[in-house]
Amino acid sequence: MINIIEPRFFEEEKQAIVQILESHKITRGEWTKFFEESFAKYLGVKYAFTVCSGTVALFIALKALKVEGERVIVPAMSFMATIDAVYLAGGIPIVVDVDEYYTMDPNQLEDAVKRYNPKVVIPVHLYGQPADMQAINYLSEKYGFVVLEDAAQAHGAEFFGKKVGSLGHLSAFSFYASKNVPMGEGGVIATNDDKIAKEVKKWIDFGEHPAFNVRITEFQAAIGAIQLKHLDERNRRRREIAKRYSESINSSFIHPTEREGAYHVYHLYTLRHKERDRIISLLKENGIDARVYYSYLLSELRGAEHLPLTNAERFKKEVFSIPVHPYLTEEEVEKIIHSLKAVEVFV
C-alpha cells in the first residue's frame, strides 16, 4: 500500500534521542528551548510556546484571549479540534462557509461579524493552503476582532512572502505524526504580541495563576527541531509532486489551485469528484491509500449556529486526498497518476 501519510526519521534524530537518554535530562531542557527559538525565528515572530498538542495550542490561545461567553467564528471545513477548542475554552462558535480554496470565505465572514460581533476569528489554513489573510486582517482592523490562525496543516506555507502563523495576532500549530513537521504529538502557540504572550505564559507556567502541565519532552523537541531543518526542502518535494498531479490528472477531477500570493505546502493533496467513494474504493484495490478529509462540517459535529454553508455542503460530499508526502518514489507517483486515469473508466 502506498501510504497517504508517512513520517520518516533518520540517523540525526536517532543520535539526538540517544544523547538525550544519556544526558538524563528528558524534559524542560536545551532541546525544548532550541526548538522554540528555532520555530519562532522560522516564522519571524518573537514568541513560540511549545505545548503537548495542536488542540491544546488552540485551547490555551483561546483561554489567553478570554473568550468565555464570547462568540468565535470558525470555518465549516476543518478538523474537529478547531471547534472543540472553542467549546472547551467557554466560547460560542459560529460557523461560516469556505471559498473555492477550502478556507474561510471572507465575504460571508463580514456578514457574520456584523451579525454576531465576535471577539475572535479562527481562519484555518486547510490542507496547507493559506486562507485569505489580507481580507481577514482588513476585516479585523475594521471591526476589531482578534485573528487566531489555525496553522496545524500549514508548516512553511506563505502568503505574499510571509509565513502563515505570523499573519494574525497569534497562531496555533500541531506536530502530530501526520503533519509536515511530525514529532508524534506536540503544538506551538506563536505570536508577536507581548501582551498576548504574557497571557499565554500564565496558562502554561506554574506560579501565580492556575496553569496546566502541557509540556513536551526533550525527545519531541529534538525530533521537531531536526524535522524543521528539513521542512523547506520537503515542502518543495510536496509541491513538485502536486504539480505533477495537477498537470497529469484528467479534468473530470477538480484539483487544488493556489490562491494569488499563496505558497501552498500540500499537507494534503485534495481532489474533488462526484463519484468520490467509488474512486477511493478502486484506488485502495490498487494499493493506493486515499481518504476523506473531512466528511463532516464543524456545524454538524456539535450543533453550532451557522450561516448558509453552500460550498462546504457540496465539497464534503466530493473531497478526497491522495498521497503527496515527500518520500514518494517516482514509480509511486507514476502509479498514482496512472491509477487515477484508469479509475475514470469505471466511474
Rank of each mutant, 00 (worst) to 15 (best):
M1N: 04
M1H: 09
I2G: 00
I2M: 03
I5Y: 01
E6M: 12
E6P: 06
R8L: 04
E11F: 13
E12I: 10
E13R: 06
E13V: 13
Q15I: 11
I17H: 09
I17A: 11
V18T: 11
L21G: 14
H24I: 07
H24R: 15
K25M: 08
E30M: 13
W31G: 08
K33W: 08
E36I: 12
F39H: 15
K41Q: 13
V45H: 03
F49K: 02
G54M: 06
V56T: 15
L62Q: 01
K63M: 12
A64M: 06
A64K: 01
K66F: 05
V67E: 02
E68K: 14
E68W: 07
E70K: 13
E70L: 00
V72W: 01
I73L: 00
S78F: 06
S78N: 06
D84K: 14
V86E: 02
A89F: 00
P93V: 01
I94P: 01
Y101W: 05
D105R: 13
Q108C: 08
L109P: 05
A112Q: 00
A112H: 05
V113L: 00
V113S: 03
Y116F: 13
V124T: 14
H125C: 15
Q129D: 02
D132P: 11
M133G: 11
Q134I: 14
V147D: 00
A157P: 11
K162Q: 14
S174H: 01
S174C: 15
N180D: 14
N180W: 11
P182C: 10
M183E: 10
G184Y: 05
T191S: 15
D193I: 11
D194W: 03
A197I: 06
A197S: 07
K201A: 13
K201F: 04
K201D: 02
K202F: 02
E208D: 14
N213Q: 15
I216T: 09
T217W: 01
E218G: 13
F219K: 06
A221G: 12
A221S: 12
A222I: 11
G224K: 13
G224V: 10
G224C: 13
I226E: 09
L228A: 04
E233Q: 15
R234F: 10
N235Q: 04
R237W: 01
E240K: 11
E240M: 11
A242I: 03
A242T: 05
R244Q: 14
R244C: 07
S246T: 15
S248W: 02
I249S: 04
R259T: 09
A262Q: 04
A262H: 08
Y263L: 10
H267E: 15
R272H: 03
E275I: 08
I280A: 07
S281Y: 06
L283G: 07
I288D: 02
D289N: 13
S295W: 09
S295A: 11
L301K: 12
L301P: 07
R302H: 14
H306R: 09
L307R: 04
T310R: 06
R314C: 08
F315C: 06
V319S: 00
P323M: 05
H325C: 09
H325W: 04
Y327P: 07
E330K: 14
I336T: 02
A342L: 12
V343G: 03
E344F: 02
V347E: 02
